[in-house]
Design a protein around this nucleic acid. Sequence first.
DNA 1: TTTACTTTTGACAAAAATTGTCAAAATAAT
DNA 2: ATTATTTTGACAATTTTTGTCAAAAGTAAA
Lengths: 100, 100
Amino acid sequence: MDSLGHTIRQLREKQKLPLRAIAAFLDIDLAILSKIERGQRNATREQVVKLAEYFKVKENDLLVAWLSDKLVYEVVDEDMALKALQVAEEKVKYNKTKKK
Amino acid sequence: MDSLGHTIRQLREKQKLPLRAIAAFLDIDLAILSKIERGQRNATREQVVKLAEYFKVKENDLLVAWLSDKLVYEVVDEDMALKALQVAEEKVKYNKTKKK
DNA sequence: TTTACTTTTGACAAAAATTGTCAAAATAAT
DNA sequence: ATTATTTTGACAATTTTTGTCAAAAGTAAA
């Protein structure tokens, strides 16, 4: 169930890089990156794009991990989380048919 | 594809009530309610609960409409909107098995 | 075990987004 | 043509998010 944080922590550890290195590339304090990796903070969209570039992984894969994390975060303490996600899916599908 | 706004506008019109009446009950300016009904603003959770009370409809139905609206809003200009919603669903299901 | 390095934590500040008010303009109903 | 209602947009207040900083905690070499 890959969260963005878990994903990038693995990528970083595989290369034995300190938080400092990636944080510098993202131009943020490493404290934030530490929190992002552990799921205590959400990254911004721009940060996700830069991370994909840095690690040379598919941008869309990272964006999906990131966006889905945010969605989960938004519903996490609601009983009807699942139902709401399902209805949201239908709404998105519906909007697609009548483009926009 | 029922948005919260559309739903409560119908409920209100069925009873021929002016925005003023419900806005007073919610303790907000009617301008906001107007925007909520037309999907220009999101309601707060508390407002949704009060609306269910006011109209005597199932609180959960309104909450699902509201939450799913918010989810749609969060992904609306992303290409991978659907994919993200699907992954989010999986994540929520997964989290449920290992309660918390 | 001390020293150097890295990560985590939490208090706080800055910035951005959300939620609201108000008043004027547009619409609808009498 | 008044009077009711709704919509719109500028702006203020509030809340949330994003970030910095420094101290504490953890890790590993020497």
